[in-house]
Write a protein that binds this DNA or RNA. Structure first.
Lengths: 133, 133
DNA sequence: CGGTATCCTGAAGGATACTG
DNA sequence: CAGTATCCTTCAGGATACCG
């Protein structure tokens, strides 16, 4: 028996590999298709809605709005709506969001750097698969 | 005009925010729903197929096989099939895959640690939304 | 054991139109 | 400008069956 189980105040250890653990959902939000890119962009600087839309190419208005809402609800993104005409809404990272964004940005930059290696691996794999037929 | 554009041998800079950039696809593979968890698991140690299936709860055989194939083709995962009866296949990380897995694992552990903060943020958000109605 | 093949459904997500 | 609402499509992914 573990010591932690004897502590009445201790939380159960989180485990992303457990499908019922809430940490799984947190991880899925920050690694979601558009969530990764929004966090990565906001890690550079604050953005307005339409700026983000142009920066993260391929995202629809609907998915961008939905992604921002999810990230705001999780406490990662700060939404500041200015009551001016035309409307203006600024998005930025909270301290919690910055932690996630730094890790996500590291992954994004790594992906950018390793494209040649990945493409070489794919060619090798496909060549081998073809040779077997 | 940038200096890099003047170098004949220079590759175009990769940009995950550009929907046409191959780095976008690389990032999507490593941050895919099951890809994250498989990389995270393999970062701890090598696993057999059925071991992974039990470790990563909620994944179907189909998705696990598909995810492993994608990661193998990208050069992240090494697949070793042993010709014994019953069959035995070991999965582990390549040096390239380990780089990705370290970054992914950092994100996974962060998610596990920050569950309380995220849940508090959600409660605050939902409470505010309800108060506005 | 470690898959592949087939079928099928639900949810993600795109297109379009509309609004404060 | 910054969304929301609606409709519609695509496809990730689950269930099942079968195979080396």
């Amino acid at each position: 028996m573990k010591v932690s189980e004897l502590k009445p105040g201790g939380l159960p250890p989180a485990d992303v590999f457990d499908r019922m653990c809430p940490s799984r959902g947190v991880l899925e939000h920050v690694t979601s298709r558009w969530g990764v890119l929004v966090l990565g962009a906001l890690n550079e600087r604050g953005y307005r809605f339409s700026e983000l839309r142009r920066k993260v190419t391929g995202v629809s208005e609907k998915m961008l709005a939905q992604t921002l809402q999810t990230l705001e609800r999780d406490g990662f993104v700060l939404r500041e709506a200015h009551p001016v005409i035309p409307p203006r809404v600024d998005y930025s990272l909270t301290p919690l969001g910055r932690e996630a964004a730094e890790l996500v940005a590291a992954l994004a930059h790594w992906s950018e750097r390793r494209v040649p290696e990945v493409e070489a691996a794919r060619q090798a794999y496909d060549g081998r698969a073809t040779a077997l037929r």
